[in-house]
C-alpha cells in the first residue's frame, strides 16, 4: 500500500468507531421503526407484515392527532418562552457575578444528579392535596379544604420549566461569557446608559445562546411524555403520550411507529430551520 492510499484511508479508519456506533444505535433502530410503520396490526393482535399505508393515513388525517400535535407545540412554546424569561436574567447574574461563578454553576447542575422522574414527582409532594403548599395554606387558615392544584396544563408547563430551565441558563451563560465586557463600557462612553448599552450590545450578541437554549427547550419539551403523565390531567396528553399509549398500552407497534416518525419529522424540521439560520456550533458550545 502506498503512502497516499494509506493517507486517503486514514479518515475512514478513524471515523469507523463513531460511524458504527451511530449506525448501530441510531440508524438501524430508526430503520426498524420506519419498516414497522408500514405493517398493520390485525384484529387478532398479530402484526401483519407488508406495505400498508393505513397507519400513516390514520395519523395524518385524524383530527384527534392533529389537535394533540398542535397542543404539544403550544405547550413546548410556552415552556420555551417561560424558560427564556426566567433563564436569561439568571444566566446574566451568574455571568456577571465575581468569584463565585463556579459554585453557582455547580448548583445549577445539582438537579441533574436526581432522576428526572423523581424531580417531576416531587411536585406532588409540594402542590398535591396533602402537599406542602396546601398544608401551609391550611395552617395559616387561608383555606379549610385542600385545593386541587395539580393535573392541569399549568402544572405540566411548571414541570417542564423545572426540567428545562438549566439547559436555557447554561446556553445563555455560555454566550454571555463570550462577550467582551468592554463593549458595554464603550457603549456607555458614547452616551448609552447601562440599560441601553445592554439592549444595544449585550442582548443582540447573546441571541445565539438564547436561540440555542430555546431550541433545546422546545425539542426536549415537545418530546416528553413523563411530565404530562405525572403532572397532567386526562386532557393534557402531549404527542409523545400518544406514542407511549399506542406502543405500551395497546401494543400497536405499527401505529406507534408512524406517530413517533411524525413527531420526529416536525421536530427535525424545527432543528433544520435553526441550523439554516444559526448553525449548530452555538448549540455545541452550550452542551460542552
Amino acid at each position: 500500500m502506498t503512502v497516499e492510499t494509506r493517507e486517503a484511508r486514514q479518515p475512514i479508519i478513524l471515523l469507523t468507531p463513531a460511524l458504527s456506533t451511530i449506525g448501530l444505535l441510531l440508524i438501524v433502530p430508526l430503520g426498524f421503526v420506519v419498516v414497522y410503520s408500514f405493517w398493520l396490526r390485525t384484529a387478532t393482535g398479530a402484526d401483519q407484515v407488508g406495505f400498508f399505508l393505513d397507519n400513516w393515513v390514520e395519523s395524518l388525517t385524524d383530527p384527534f392527532y392533529r389537535d394533540i400535535l398542535l397542543n404539544t407545540i403550544k405547550i413546548a412554546l410556552i415552556t420555551t418562552v417561560v424558560c427564556a424569561l426566567a433563564g436569561y436574567p439568571t444566566a446574566y447574574f451568574i455571568a456577571r457575578s465575581n468569584g463565585n461563578r463556579l459554585v453557582l454553576l455547580l448548583l445549577l447542575m445539582l438537579p441533574f444528579w436526581i432522576s428526572y422522574i423523581i424531580r417531576t414527582m416531587s411536585w406532588i409532594n409540594i402542590l398535591g392535596v396533602s402537599g406542602a403548599f396546601n398544608w401551609a395554606l391550611m395552617s395559616v387558615g387561608l383555606t379549610s379544604e385542600p385545593i386541587q392544584m395539580l393535573y392541569n396544563e399549568a402544572t405540566v408547563i411548571l414541570g417542564l420549566v423545572h426540567f428545562l430551565l438549566p439547559f436555557m441558563i447554561l446556553n445563555v451563560y455560555v454566550s454571555l461569557e463570550g462577550i467582551d465586557r468592554t463593549l458595554e463600557d464603550a457603549a456607555c462612553s458614547l452616551g448609552a446608559n447601562r440599560w441601553r448599552a445592554f439592549l444595544e450590545v449585550t442582548l443582540p450578541l447573546s441571541l445565539p445562546g438564547l436561540a440555542a437554549g430555546g431550541l433545546l427547550c422546545f425539542v426536549l419539551g415537545a418530546g416528553t411524555y413523563i411530565t404530562p403523565l405525572v403532572l397532567g390531567g386526562p386532557t393534557d396528553a402531549m404527542f409523545a403520550n400518544l406514542v407511549f399509549e399506542a406502543i405500551i398500552t395497546q401494543l400497536n407497534w405499527p401505529l406507534g411507529s408512524a406517530l413517533s416518525l411524525m413527531l420526529l419529522v416536525v421536530l427535525g424540521a424545527v432543528v433544520m430551520v435553526y441550523n439554516r439560520y444559526l448553525g449548530m456550533t452555538q448549540l455545541m458550545k452550550g452542551l460542552q
Binding site: 468592554t182 463593549l183 464603550a186 458614547l190 446608559n193
Partner: peptide, 20 residues
C-alpha cells in the same frame, strides 16, 4: 456624573468595536 453623561471619547486597548 455617570460615564454616559461625561461626553468623553475613549479608545480601548482591544478597540471594543461592536462586532454586530
Amino acid at each position: 456624573l455617570p460615564i454616559y453623561k461625561r461626553n468623553l471619547g475613549i479608545v480601548f486597548q482591544n478597540y471594543a468595536l461592536f462586532p454586530h
